[in-house]
């Protein structure tokens, strides 16, 4: 309970900062609009006007939350205007991309830990892959996948999302699989343990805490990857598409509410991973 007050204080401060920023951001346009209808605004009127503009440069918090409420709770989930619908599309691609990226990351990590050749040949490329802006790569992946005959946006989106999330998993798992010290390895050697036994009984269980840390970063990266995959590609469904459409139609409220929906989704996914982590570590006996 003692942490509630600081948390609320931070939220209140952020909201206050946001409201304060709304006034100068929208003032010029509000004055312009007033002038067009031959009205001169007093200070109080001006502030009020900046808070509830139809097409603000910066929407005020209550506008964003009203839109969020309207497009999640009030709309039917099958509606094209429902953020639940778009969030669901994004979530699906995110989870596919996450599954793909995690599998790839783990497989590469095992290869790198067991093969010096793979470490020298794969690791540099894995690092380089993360230095290329995903925005530049996303359209290429979409063009390539449609040219090999893959219908729809689901697969290329998942690939882009996997591209972002395999890396933290790879790095974490390499570290995790290498975490057993020499004494642990010597002990298994005195039992005459096979390579497979060393992997399944020592290296893999030792890597679990590292894996979960990576999964938490990975799932957030996968969501970002999916949204980026929806942005520059003319997609019409998904949170990224909502952001793009909001931009094209000059509707900042729509952009902001989609951004908030994405943030809420990311928060939920990371929380889910944390939960999975504590349950797993508890069941393994590693949590105290």
């Amino acid at each position: 309970m003692r942490s509630v007050l600081p948390v609320l204080t931070v939220i209140a401060a952020l909201l206050a900062l946001w409201y304060i920023a709304v006034v100068p951001m929208n003032a010029a346009r509000a004055v312009e609009q007033a002038a067009r209808s031959d009205v001169t605004l007093g200070t109080a009127d001006l502030i009020r006007a900046t808070m509830d503009m139809e097409r603000p440069r910066l929407p005020s918090p209550h506008q964003v939350f009203a839109e969020l409420w309207d497009s999640t709770v009030e709309k039917k989930v099958t509606s094209k205007r429902s953020l639940v619908f778009h969030g669901w599309i994004t979530l699906g691609a995110t989870l596919w991309g996450f599954a793909l990226g995690v599998s790839l990351g783990i497989a590469l990590a095992v290869g790198i830990v067991y093969s010096r050749v793979m470490e020298m040949s794969v690791m540099p490329w894995a690092v380089i892959s993360q230095t290329i802006p995903i925005v530049a790569l996303a359209p290429m992946i979409i063009v390539l996948s449609s040219s090999v005959g893959i219908e729809g946006r689901g697969v290329p989106k998942a690939i882009i999302s996997a591209y972002l999330c395999f890396f933290p998993v790879l790095v974490g798992m390499v570290k995790g699989l290498r975490s057993p010290d020499q004494m642990q390895l010597d002990l298994l050697k005195t039992y005459g343990a096979s390579g497979a036994a060393v992997f399944w009984k020592l290296r893999l269980p030792s890597s679990v805490p590292y894996l979960f840390t990576s999964l938490k970063i990975g799932i957030a990266a996968a969501l970002v990857g999916t949204i980026v995959g929806e942005l520059p590609t003319g997609a019409i469904r998904g949170l990224g598409a909502r952001i793009l459409i909001g931009d094209q139609f000059g509707n900042p409220i729509m952009i902001w509410s989609a951004l908030f929906a994405a943030a809420i989704l990311a928060g939920a996914l990371v929380t889910l991973m944390s939960l999975l982590q504590s349950v797993t570590l508890k069941r393994m006996g590693m949590a105290r």
Partner: peptide, 26 residues
């Protein structure tokens, strides 16, 4: 059987399952 300076028990195994480790491998 070899005993090292550190006990080196696996934190994810109970004491009984730690003792079973060489038995499983063998």
């Amino acid at each position: 059987g070899y005993v090292f300076q550190a006990a080196g028990l696996y934190p994810w195994r109970t004491i009984a399952r730690n003792i079973k480790l060489p038995l499983e491998i063998m």
